[in-house]
Nucleic acid binder design. Structure first.
Lengths: 341, 341
DNA sequence: GTGAAAGCGCTAACAC
DNA sequence: GTGTTAGCGCTTTCAC
């Protein structure tokens, strides 16, 4: 280990190493890449020298030459809610799983957070940078059309989000509409009749959840579900939720929150108002984040399988990288009944 | 937009563009880089063509030539707790802020999750890859010595973690020992006398928190603080906490949890056992994550300023990139009194 | 099985 | 101001 350090620096390129080994750069390249036939003794000698000097071939040069980088871009567009959506627990968890899956496949991960409002060109810029072999977009935000535009001309892209009939970009995501139906059905089964939806329906995933819930309300002959828009960040959402609750006081007995985070905030706000959950108001979340099982009472919610989502994203991307055409992957949500509905 | 798409592909290199503009590649490079003097008309013409064809210079080629990549590596070593520590809320939040700060400074972020146990060479490999201009290590885990080794030979590295007297690598982090003291003092002020520490003290940050608490216990003439080691992932920790609580039943009246996540789990476990918090047992966490204000009762904790941490990491790294020597940055923790202690 | 040579796409002297 | 040229470090034919 310490001799690594002492000699590091003397061998910076494959050519340096070649000189030391008394062979040509080409041979070193072949030996280190582990491909082509190279004499075993030559290979061992080269590997020994490389190890001794802590030499590692420059990935940029290699990438340039081979026209591939070994890097997958992961981009999170912050559309409708600029500030720090990147710390959203769901996306961060998905990112963690993505990192695992990509590492497993030998790819590096380049993370980019973009604000489409300030940078209309965000997706083309990333793709055109030459730094990535493919891109995973986490969340369609309000950028559905922009993504559609790009999908026609660029193959290796997979998006986490909502699937719409006839869309052109390959998407992996939960069946949000079905999830919305499950949520509304559960609220109603728990005795709710006057429903509200907590969350910003300009986000397409949320719109689908809302639509699914509305389907059920209509089918059951209930009043239309009231929309209570909020931001996603806890700081802003807390105030908004408080105001909403005061505004609809006594007119709502079931709340479907677009995410568990919002549901948890809502639960706190309800408690401070002395509203009993689930007796006065039933509450259901979405995601099944760790927090859901630790609220008081524990949160009933609609689970998304994040690990499966990450696996799906990477799997589809690799197949597209290999030139395959791929269908979108729609994952089934799952109702998790705890104690708030 | 749609004409972008139609013509995209015809202009792939700076040379293609040069031909179209009737100038040399060098001029295109200069025009697009915005440096050196280029005739205004020429520049505008080149920019127009670039825009029209959605052309963007290849960053790998540029990086290779300029010997810098515009990418900062961010690596999370998963030492003592392999599985999915990357989804740890604290690290993920820090990562979010880092992404913001680096973007602001014009750098891209390459994320790598490594398991040092399976890959002793993790840090050298990343640094030597030629893909990054500098590296930020999130968490020392149990890799303190490995990081020290590297620090001697590689300048542009900054680490999030604990500062120890005389260490050679540049670190940004909270004063964990002081944080531990604040926590223990608060528990004692709230009436606790028989303290326990919940968390794995082989992680150096946690060891410092524990040591700080132990300082106070000793100074106050209390019994030594009992160590209750746990993993970090909620799944494994839940069981361990349950077992610990049963084992120390009646012998502990104050618990200092190494993180808010552990504290939240502990709170749930205490409730299911009918233990009153803070009356029977006082509880304090560490971090002040969003969850801390949403437990029931809300969690008293020691706050780390994550945003300031991220800013510090990036600031120091940029200065090191510029060749400066930098001292470590130790941030003061802050006691946040809520209702569990 | 190995060497020689030609670039990958870009930038930075150095001329003019 | 702009063109020309020589690489950055690597991979990959094509010879032998």
């Amino acid at each position: 280990m310490s001799e690594d350090r002492a000699t590091r620096g003397s061998v910076r390129t494959i050519t340096d190493l070649a000189r030391l080994a008394g062979v040509s750069p080409g041979t070193v390249s072949r030996a280190l890449a582990g491909k082509s036939l190279v004499n075993t003794k030559t290979r061992e000698k080269i590997e020994a020298i490389a190890r001794e000097h802590g030499f590692r071939p420059n990935q940029m040069a290699s990438g340039l030459r081979r026209q591939k980088t070994g890097v997958i871009g992961v981009v999170i567009p912050l559309g409708h809610d600029t500030r720090q959506q990147i710390s959203d627990t769901f996306f961060m968890t998905l990112l963690g799983f993505l990192a695992d899956e990509l590492t497993l496949e030998g790819y590096d991960l380049m993370l980019r957070r973009v604000v489409p409002k300030d940078d209309a060109d965000w997706l083309d810029r990333f793709i055109g940078s030459g730094m990535i072999d493919g891109v995973i977009v986490i969340g369609q935000s309000d950028q559905f059309d922009r993504i559609e535009d790009v999908a026609d001309g660029y193959g290796p892209m997979v998006v986490w989000g909502n699937h719409a009939e006839g869309q052109r970009h390959c998407v992996v995501g939960t069946d949000n509409r079905l999830g919305g139906r499950l949520a509304a059905e559960r609220l109603i089964a728990a005795g709710a009749r006057r429903l509200a939806f907590l969350g910003d329906t300009t986000a397409i995933e949320f719109a689908a959840r809302f639509a699914g819930a509305q389907d059920v309300a209509q089918r059951m002959g209930l009043a239309p579900i009231i929309e209570l828009p909020t931001h996603l960040s806890p700081e802003r959402a807390s105030d908004e939720i408080a105001r909403h609750l005061d505004a609809v006081k006594g007119r709502v007995d079931g709340i479907f929150a677009a995410t568990d985070t919002l549901a948890a905030l809502c639960l706190t706000a309800l408690r401070t108002r002395g509203v009993a959950v689930p007796d006065d108001i039933r509450l259901i979340g979405f995601d099944d984040l760790p927090i859901a099982s630790h609220t008081v009472p524990p949160l009933t919610t609609v689970k998304q399988d994040i690990a499966a989502g990450a696996r799906g994203l990477v799997d589809l991307l690799l197949r597209r990288l290999a030139g395959e055409q791929t269908e979108s992957l729609v994952l089934p949500p799952q109702l998790v009944v705890r104690q708030t509905a």
